[in-house]
């Protein structure tokens, strides 16, 4: 081998070694960067950018209390213990459906409920958004949008329960939670959606009225026969039972009671497990006519359904 050949050969070898070093370096860099990127981003996907959190204050809602109402009990209203009349009497309410009849012998029944608290308004988009943000729910995937003051919709029955569990943990752990609420929780209360009975008592009070405001039809206090949902608190109803808003119309409200024939008896809620789950919803929506926004009307929905006419409100109950 000549001197020049040897230079050529060693030069080739040097280039080969150099090229290989560069190649290995690039490969290692790619692997390290990809692994780091996947480790960081891969487990965050679906959370970032999910939530529309609201920088501005919402009038009437407390930003520091997960946008619950800005009043003494953070939007909760106490419903005192006692009996109320459940179901419909067709003699008194001509629009009554068959499934509102208490039994073959009785048209209506009396149900006793211990004290509980119920939210004055339907749960809002602002409230649900914070929960969704913290839980990694993808609001865009749910198809939820709209102004923060509007009631949340397109949520499933488990979503509503999950919100209740989340809010309960917030209320339990916050030093600012109103003392009445906190002590109720400490005595065994929990935040969830209302039972059918809790919802109906809150809607009609203990005087058996047909609508939340009384027994005469009017469109003054409820959003029904309409084209669009309205913001919560858009129409306050001081004459409604317990001063609650939108117990008639706006959005159907989910309950934690399975659809079963009356007489109402929560102890049999866990029976008939082989049947498909179907949960009672109450109150009618903005698309419904007057007869569907009565306090005794019983709708029902599959637990997995998302619909733009269905929302919920929460209760704090000892049951």
């Amino acid at each position: 081998m000549s001197h020049e050949d040897s230079i050529f050969s060693s030069n080739n070898k040097n280039q080969e070694v150099q090229g290989r070093t560069v190649g290995f370096t690039i490969m290692i860099m790619i692997i390290v960067v990809v692994a780091a990127w996947m480790g960081i981003q891969g487990n965050n996907s679906g959370i970032a950018g999910n939530s529309q959190l609201y920088a501005e204050d919402l009038k009437g809602f407390n930003r520091d209390a997960w946008y619950l109402s800005d009043d003494v009990l953070w939007g909760f209203v106490e419903v005192p213990s006692g009996e109320f009349i459940m179901g419909s009497n067709p003699a008194f309410d001509r629009s009554a459906y068959e499934n509102e009849r208490w039994s073959d012998l009785e048209r209506q029944g009396k149900v006793f409920l211990p004290t509980y608290y119920i939210s004055r308004f339907e749960t809002t988009i602002a409230q649900f958004s914070i929960f969704a943000h913290e839980s990694g729910l993808d609001l865009e995937q749910i198809g939820l949008g709209g102004a923060p003051r509007f009631p949340v919709y397109n949520i499933t029955w488990p979503d509503a329960l999950a919100y209740g569990r989340w809010l309960e943990s917030k209320l339990r752990n916050s030093p600012n939670t109103p003392s009445a609420i906190k002590s109720f929780l400490n005595e065994g209360g929990r935040v969830t959606i209302p039972s059918e009975a809790e919802w109906e008592k809150a809607a009609r009070g203990d005087d058996g009225r047909v609508f939340p405001w009384g027994s005469q039809p009017t469109s003054a206090f409820a959003n029904f026969n309409s084209d669009e949902v309205r913001a919560v608190g858009a129409e306050l109803c001081s004459i409604c039972a317990y001063g609650l808003s939108d117990m008639a119309g706006n959005l159907w409200e989910l309950t934690r009671s399975p659809l079963q024939d009356y007489p109402y008896n929560p102890s049999d809620d866990g029976e008939n497990l082989s049947e498909d789950a179907l949960w009672v919803m109450r109150g009618g929506s903005y698309t419904d006519s007057l007869n569907n926004v009565r306090t005794a009307v019983r709708g029902a929905v599959d637990p997995g359904v998302r619909n733009s006419t269905i929302g919920f409100r929460v209760v704090i109950t000892s049951r």
């Binding site: 029955w157 399975p258 049947e275 498909d276 949960w279 997995g304």
Partner: peptide, 9 residues
């Protein structure tokens, strides 16, 4: 539950 299995609900 979303698949309508009542026991899960």
């Amino acid at each position: 539950c979303e698949l309508k299995f009542k026991a899960a609900c």
